[in-house]
C-alpha cells in the first residue's frame, strides 16, 4: 500500500515513516504541506496520513481538496495532529477525514487506526 505522509515537521515525517515501516508499510511518499501533497497525489496513492497545522495548505484544507478530486473521493485519510479540541475533530470528520490520531501517538495506535480505516473502507465497498 502506497502511503502519502504529510507533515511540515521533518522529524514527524521521519517518525511516521519509521513507524509505518515497523508495522509493515514501507512504500511511503512524503510532503511538507497540503499544497505539496495535492501535487504529489495521483492514482497510485492508496492512503493519506496528514497533519493539521501546516503552511500554505492545512491538513483540513487538504482533506477537502482531495475529496473534491475524482481520484481522491474515496482515498482513506488519517489525520495525525496535536489538535484535540472537540470542535476541531468534528470539523475534520466533516471535511472527509476517516480517522483521527492525537499526537503524541504510539505505533500501536497508528496500526489500530490504519486497520480501522481500511476495514471501514472495505466494509463500505
Amino acid at each position: 500500500m502506497k502511503i502519502l505522509v504529510v507533515d511540515d515537521s521533518a522529524t514527524m515525517r521521519r517518525i511516521l515513516v519509521n513507524s509505518l515501516q515497523r508495522i509493515g508499510y514501507s512504500d511511503c511518499v512524503e510532503a511538507g504541506d497540503g499544497r505539496e501533497a495535492v501535487d504529489k497525489f495521483d492514482g497510485s496513492i492508496q492512503f493519506v496520513i496528514t497533519d493539521w497545522n501546516m503552511p500554505n495548505m492545512s491538513g483540513i484544507d487538504l482533506a477537502r481538496a482531495l475529496r473534491a478530486l475524482p481520484e481522491g473521493k474515496s482515498v482513506p485519510i488519517l489525520m495525525v495532529t496535536t489538535r484535540s479540541v472537540k470542535e476541531d475533530i468534528i470539523a475534520a470528520v466533516q471535511a472527509g477525514v476517516n480517522n483521527y490520531i492525537v499526537k503524541p501517538f504510539t505505533p500501536q495506535v497508528l496500526k489500530e487506526k490504519i486497520d480501522a480505516v481500511l476495514s471501514g473502507v472495505a466494509a463500505a465497498a
Binding site: 515537521s9 522529524t11 514527524m12 517518525i15 519509521n18 515497523r22 499526537k103 503524541p104 501517538f105 505505533p107
Partner: peptide, 15 residues
C-alpha cells in the same frame, strides 16, 4: 524504536 517515538516531543514543543 520507542526512543524514536518519544522524539515527537520536538514537534509539540516546536508548536
Amino acid at each position: 524504536f520507542a526512543l524514536m517515538g518519544h522524539m515527537q516531543f520536538q514537534d509539540i514543543t516546536s508548536q
